[in-house]
């Protein structure tokens, strides 16, 4: 465990907690893409199937449970909670995320470490995580201005991926046979998706203006 990975896990956790806070405090989920949350729930369920078979560490197991539980809680809240679901931008959150699921599944069947059920699911979860933010970014583009909690949510998610890339670089130089090219390539793609958001986020922060994304 290196500092980059630990910091990455913490910012990932913070991003989910910020989202839970926003929904719980404002009893509103406007500006949040439910499809992105459903994709993340799928990512964690597909990736953590080994939670019962492979014990790596207490930290690892606890974090997996927290990620699955919090993401499912967000999805449940956005679907089931009477008050919250009324504020869901149904007509704006129209990204056809089933294509993302299908594409990730096909890619996982083609490119994986080993052709076993668990490996295919793991590769699927890695590819899906890379594109899961797309419905959220499209929703932000459409809704134009971004309320600061949602902006912070995407910011922390981007920071988590950026820190993980530093973690992979660190591990590449410190561990002789570290090979995680599937996650590295996919992680780079995902971080690139955030790049333009970071650019506008930084501009809005610098000009102390509301975050406006170009339509």
């Amino acid at each position: 465990m290196n500092i980059f990975r630990f910091a990455g896990d913490m910012t990932h956790l913070i991003s989910i907690l910020v989202l839970l806070l926003k929904i719980y405090a404002t009893k509103s989920c406007s500006g949040i893409s439910r499809k992105t949350q459903e994709l993340y729930a799928l990512v964690f369920l597909a990736r953590y199937v080994d939670i019962f078979t492979e014990f790596i560490s207490v930290y690892n197991t606890i974090m997996k449970i927290v990620f699955i539980a919090s993401t499912l809680a967000i999805v449940w809240c956005m679907r089931g909670h009477r008050v919250v679901r009324r504020s869901y931008d149904k007509e704006l959150d129209t990204f056809r995320h089933y294509f993302l699921i299908a594409a990730s599944l096909v890619l996982a069947l083609l490119v994986h470490e080993k052709f076993t059920f668990q490996e295919i699911l793991w590769a699927f979860s890695i590819y899906l995580e890379a594109v899961a933010i797309l419905p959220q970014l499209v929703l932000l583009q459409r809704s134009g201005n971004v309320d600061n909690l949602t902006g912070q949510y995407v910011f922390f998610l981007g920071a988590y991926r950026g820190l993980y890339i530093l973690n992979w670089i660190y591990r590449y130089f410190t561990e002789p046979h570290f090979s995680r090219w599937i996650a590295c390539v996919s992680g780079l793609v995902q971080t690139a998706l955030y790049a333009d958001f970071f650019y506008y986020y930084f501009l809005s922060w610098k000009n102390n203006a509301k975050l406006k994304l170009p339509a």
Binding site: R5, D50, M63, E175, F178, S179, R180, A183
Partner: peptide, 10 residues
């Protein structure tokens, strides 16, 4: 092995 393949990551 898990660590080498990065499967020890979240």
């Amino acid at each position: 092995l898990l660590a080498l393949l990065g499967k020890d990551e979240l």
